[in-house]
């Protein structure tokens, strides 16, 4: 185990930013801290970097107590949300900084530092831009320089705070794949913070979902998606529709029809159940919930529908372009029937 976080609690005045948080990271793992704003994910990252101190709990790295080390001594590569590049230094000087400030005894020679900078510039594919200043770079380029600067110190762990937060959608996707590649090449244990579930699921080996300073669930992306443990995780990972139902023995019964129910806590009786847009079937006659078509929108490879029941409830459903939904028009009446529901 390279990183072991145990029972961390951190309060700011009266507000508990983190409440009894524990998790572990394997060597070389790529871990995402996912949560809405205010969930404590950035606070957690700062604690790991040594930029804040927890009130209680422990952080161990390779068996050593990390909390006793100052931020300077932890040798953690931190990539800040704002990148925090040194604006008066060139790209190359930025990358070399962490090596240049080492005590004379540990400092590599000038030639070694220059070689490392070259290697890293090549790694981030900015070989020709070493002499530029940060202000002369695009957002994506700055991000890569920040990463190279963090990697230059041979970090024991890499921490990234909303690494793609300040970039536009197109650059984001590109950099995401690139970051994964860099991680696979360098093998550094990496933890990154994000509020974007798609990003977390796309990139990470495992995802830690945080809510109000507590861990809701930890798991591999597919595991989280297929087996959410709470309504929060279910809703945070995608669009959700809610309906009341009677649940027993893994089956949810509605007015005139049933659907298989997934219930991690094995609940039964009258419950609110949830279903995904793509776990919905439409039929012209029923059984199902009667609803009118409010809107029809193309959503990439599928068709997205908004449906309103007579009592005002709105469902969002998703279907293949070539399906029963493709012939519908605004105002048509259809019957919605969930094919699989979740109970929390």
């Amino acid at each position: 185990m390279s990183l072991v976080v145990k029972n961390i609690t951190k309060c700011f005045s009266d507000f508990a930013a983190l409440n009894d948080v524990s998790f572990q990271a394997e060597p070389g793992e790529f871990l995402a801290l996912l949560g809405p704003s205010g969930s404590g994910k950035t606070t957690l990252l700062r604690l790991l970097a040594g930029l804040d101190q927890p009130d209680t709990g422990s952080v161990e790295f390779d068996g050593a107590d990390y909390l006793k080390l100052s931020a300077r001594d932890r040798r953690i590569g931190m990539v800040f949300q704002s990148y925090a590049l040194f604006r008066h230094m060139t790209v190359a000087q930025n990358i070399a900084f962490g090596l240049n400030v080492r005590p004379a005894k540990e400092r590599p020679s000038k030639a070694e530092i220059a070689a490392t900078v070259q290697r890293l510039l090549k790694l981030i594919q900015l070989e020709d831009l070493g002499k530029r200043y940060p202000s002369q770079l695009s957002g994506g380029q700055r991000q890569r320089v920040a990463l190279a600067r963090a990697l230059a110190i041979s970090p024991r762990m890499l921490l990234l705070d909303e690494p793609f937060g300040a970039l536009d959608a197109l650059v984001r996707k590109d950099l995401r794949r690139w970051l994964r590649k860099i991680h696979d090449e360098t093998g550094v244990t990496t933890i990154f913070v994000t509020h974007d579930q798609e990003e977390a699921l796309d990139l990470a080996d495992r995802v830690v979902v945080l809510k109000d300073g507590q861990i809701e669930q930890i798991g591999k992306p597919l595991e989280l998606y297929r087996h959410p443990q709470s309504a929060f995780v279910f809703e945070f990972l995608g669009t959700s529709n809610e309906v009341p139902a009677t649940v027993s023995d893994g089956v949810a019964s509605f007015d005139g029809f049933t659907a298989p129910a997934v219930s991690p806590k094995a609940l039964s009786g009258a419950q609110t159940v949830r279903f995904r847009p793509f776990d919905a079937q439409l039929s012209p006659t029923g059984p199902g919930f009667e609803a009118k078509v409010l809107s029809l929108l193309p959503a990439g490879s599928s068709l997205r529908l908004e449906l309103q029941t007579p009592d005002g409830k709105v469902f969002e459903t998703q279907h293949a372009h070539e399906s029963e939904a493709s012939d519908l028009k605004l105002g048509d009446t259809v019957f919605v029937r969930p094919s699989k529901v979740y109970v929390f």
Binding site: A71, R72, I76, G77, A84, L85, F86, M89, V101, A150
Partner: peptide, 24 residues
Amino acid sequence: DEEIAAVTLGASGWDVFFRVTLPN
């Protein structure tokens, strides 16, 4: 931001001041 980044990169207090703060 820049000063904290320098600390995480291992800079001492005087390094932070003379190499990051003062030039800015």
